[in-house]
Design a protein around this nucleic acid. Structure first.
Length: 643
DNA sequence: TTAGGGTTAG
């Protein structure tokens, strides 16, 4: 930081070195009346107050100077503006603006840019825009300040419009402009055009521009381009690493995100809050509890970072480790609506509905206003606990109490709630009353209700609606085919299979993952690849026969039940989650929880199997499928046998 | 005087 004496020396030099003592004192050619040269004493006092960030004294000094007809120069005004910004003093900032333009003076572009930037930082875009409009000359900084302001305010069209206007005025963009305008891009076409523009201007190698490019390609789901931009970089900094790790984690490519994280560490970088947040997100997606715990150790360095703690909380919730999640939540120094919503949804999804609803009350009591997602967690909790009246109350009153319009997801929760309670007709009525158009997820939810309550006709109707909106949904094709087969509608069965062949739709094979000693073991249905598969199968056969001895009957009635479509009796025995459960029994110590993640919904038979294994082997088994969490303990499941 | 990265549902 510059010392006061250095500053004074600087001022002294300015005063003595030129016939125009203050370099930015208006010249005769400036608009407005020429200003008197400043008095060194008054000016020195004023400058000192500015550098000391003593805003009240600086403002008084400025007024005193102006009473003598003395005006500061642009550099000093810019220091005063920094003073206002440091103190978040909006009104004083506006006053400085008036002083800068007082006496008909027309300040230099440099100073007007600083004033615009001040208004942007105060989030007063209208004031910034008005000042920008008044400018006689706008340079690249003026334009970039406005573009960046609109990009930050999520007014993408406005930011892009300014970029085009800037080009039309013949102002050449620089790397600052590109990294700002990229954030406003929401279409691939724009990004490619901009990318070409940067290459032409030789700005592509700038590290800020590159990280913005990686980020925007990732957000547009163009990971190949993001990785390409990243790999082409010879010099990478931490933000660039964070951009690619974050992009991968947000695009459900957790494995690759964790690989890049390892490469980043090998390259000598130390993770910061943003890195750890993305790494936790990758762990969350993969349900890697043990790896997540390792990351937790590093999170302790940043224990007041809200975003990072929210990510940690979510990791524990989604890995099914509610005790850890509660502990993180209790210890958080600050909690925002995301912290509360994450915890409420985490409790609800893991089967702790009453706790979730109690937490919602606590949240409101603590003065935090619920948002769209909070209410989803609350409705989910009601649905899980079969609290039809409460769920309908929250749903019907959300607009009135919290100002939140019910969206498709809220309708989905209530359809699920009514379906779970056997009120399928009411669920249909709700679909009909929806203000927004039902989508494939809505119909799939209704299909779930039909599945449980064996409502074949409605199931066929709902399945057809799903396929209209999502013609690639293999699970629904298989389900529909099974429904027809059960009704001996063989022509319809053939038609469904023909459609699947024609469209090249194949069912994704069922896959389950389990983490043992920080290694991930993956099992595919009917797996033969795992090195211990023979031992696993031997255990599995013994276990199935043991369970059959206490009444387990493999459930081969898959109609309206098997969302995987793994309907053959022999494959039933080798469903991926059964293999993973047995591997967990073989590999994990007797007290530890068996945690499994699945890519497809669990079938009815595996659900029964898991409940019985949990009972006979005295284990807690947690299976996370794409939609729900199942905690199996003492022969029961937290989902209440509805999923 | 202008620029880049991280959190909740689905």
């Amino acid at each position: 930081m510059r010392t006061v004496s250095a500053k004074l020396k600087h001022i002294g030099t300015s005063l003595s070195s030129s016939s125009r003592p203050y370099s930015l004192t208006p010249l005769a050619s400036s608009h407005g009346k020429p200003r008197n040269p400043p008095s060194p004493t008054l000016l020195n006092e004023f400058v000192n107050f500015c550098y000391q960030r003593d805003l009240p004294k600086a403002m008084n000094a400025m007024a005193a100077m102006e009473r003598h007809g003395i005006y500061a120069d642009s550099i000093t005004y810019s220091e005063l503006i920094k003073c206002c910004l440091a103190r978040n003093a909006v009104e004083q900032g506006k006053l400085v603006h008036k002083h800068v333009f007082s006496n008909g003076y027309q300040p230099k572009t440099f100073l007007i840019n600083i004033l615009i930037s001040m208004y942007v930082k105060f989030k007063l875009l209208d004031e910034a825009q008005a000042l920008f409009d008044q400018m006689r000359e706008r340079n690249v900084v003026s334009w970039t300040t406005m573009i960046s302001a609109y990009a930050n305010a999520k007014l993408s069209d406005k930011a892009l419009e300014f970029f085009v206007l800037m080009l039309r005025e013949g102002v050449l963009p620089n790397m600052f402009t590109f990294s700002s305008v990229l954030r406003a891009c929401n279409g691939l076409f724009n990004v490619r055009q901009l990318h070409c523009g940067m290459v032409k201007l030789g700005l592509e190698s700038d590290v800020f521009v590159r990280s913005a490019l990686i980020d925007v390609y990732s957000k547009l789901d163009e990971l190949k381009d993001a990785i390409c931009v990243f790999n082409e970089m010879e010099t990478k900094d931490l933000v660039v690493w964070n951009s690619i790790i974050g992009g991968l984690a947000q695009n459900s490519d957790g494995d690759e995100a964790l690989d890049q994280f390892k490469r980043m560490k090998r390259a000598g970088f130390t993770a910061d809050q943003a890195t750890l947040t993305s790494v936790l997100r990758a762990c969350t997606g993969l349900a890697l509890l043990e790896v997540g715990r390792q990351v937790h150790v590093h999170v302790l360095k940043f224990d007041v970072d809200l975003i990072l703690n929210n990510a940690l909380l979510d990791m524990y919730c989604k890995s099914g480790s509610l005790e850890d999640a509660k502990s993180v939540f209790e210890r958080m120094v600050h909690r925002d609506v995301i912290s509360w919503s994450t915890m409420i949804a985490g409790l609800a999804q893991n089967g702790f509905s009453q706790e979730a609803l109690k937490l919602f009350d606590l949240m409101k009591a603590s003065g935090i206003k619920p948002n769209y997602i909070t209410i989803l967690g609350v409705l989910f909790a009601c649905s899980h606990a079969g609290l039809v009246d409460d769920g309908l109350y929250y749903f019907r009153s959300m607009k009135r109490l919290y100002g939140i319009d019910p969206g498709r997801e809220h309708y989905g929760c209530i359809i699920d709630l009514l379906g779970r309670a056997g009120k399928v007709d009411e669920a249909v009525s709700l679909v009909q009353e929806m203000e927004c158009e039902p989508d494939a997820v809505t119909w799939r939810t209704l299909l779930g209700a039909c599945k449980v309550h064996r409502n074949v006709d409605l199931a066929i109707y709902a399945a057809k609606q799903v396929l209209k909106l999502d013609p690639e949904d293999a699970g629904t094709y298989v389900l529909l085919s099974n429904i027809y087969a059960n009704s001996q509608r063989w022509e319809d069965v053939s038609e469904i299979r023909r459609q699947m062949r024609e469209k090249g739709i194949t069912k994704e094979p069922g896959c389950s993952w389990i983490e043992v000693n920080k290694q991930i073991h993956a099992f595919i249905v009917g797996d033969t690849a795992h090195p211990e598969i023979n031992e696993i199968n031997r255990w599995l056969n013994q276990l199935i026969h043991k369970l059959m001895g206490i009444g387990y009957v493999p459930d081969t009635n898959f109609v309206l039940q098997d969302l995987e479509g793994e309907q053959r009796d022999d494959s039933l025995w080798y469903h991926s989650e059964k293999l993973a459960i047995v591997f967990g029994l073989m590999s994990l110590s007797s007290g530890s929880v068996i945690r499994i993640r699945k890519n497809l919904r669990i079938c009815g038979d595996c659900h029964t199997f898991a409940k019985l294994v949990a009972k006979t082997e005295c284990r807690v088994i947690v299976i996370r499928d794409p939609i729900r969490y199942h905690h199996f303990q003492n022969g029961v499941c937290s989902c209440g046998d509805y999923w």
